[in-house]
């Protein structure tokens, strides 16, 4: 199982989404989420959305392990 986090506006689309999932890459997690939650799926496939695993930005095909923390990150707007 991996743990899911959604930040910024993605959080609004992920209110009904379970916090854990079975997936071997972030790309697979995104695919599974999009199948069950099409509105969230559309947001996750936006090219500007980045993914991090255990707080490091990674490519979408990064292998995941038991307990990996996968976070979906929309464009940042701090400062």
């Amino acid at each position: 199982m991996i743990n899911l986090l959604f930040f910024g506006r993605l959080g609004d689309f992920a209110k009904a989404v379970p916090s854990t999932l079975e997936a071997s890459t972030p790309a697979e997690a995104r695919e599974l989420l999009a199948a069950d939650f099409p509105d969230l799926g559309r947001e996750l496939y936006e090219p500007q959305v980045l993914v991090s695993v255990n707080k490091m930005i990674v490519p979408w095909d990064q292998p995941l392990f038991e307990g990996s923390e996968v976070a979906f990150l929309p464009p940042v707007t701090g400062g």
């Binding site: 910024g8 506006r9 500007q48 940042v76 400062g79």
Partner: peptide, 25 residues
């Protein structure tokens, strides 16, 4: 500042008339 604005994981939302709205980059 330029790098903080574009790389650091902060997200801003505004509240107006009791409605929350996320700011675009």
């Amino acid at each position: 500042m330029d790098y903080l604005k574009t790389q650091a994981t902060f997200w801003k939302s505004i509240r107006r008339d009791n409605q929350q709205q996320w700011i675009h980059s």
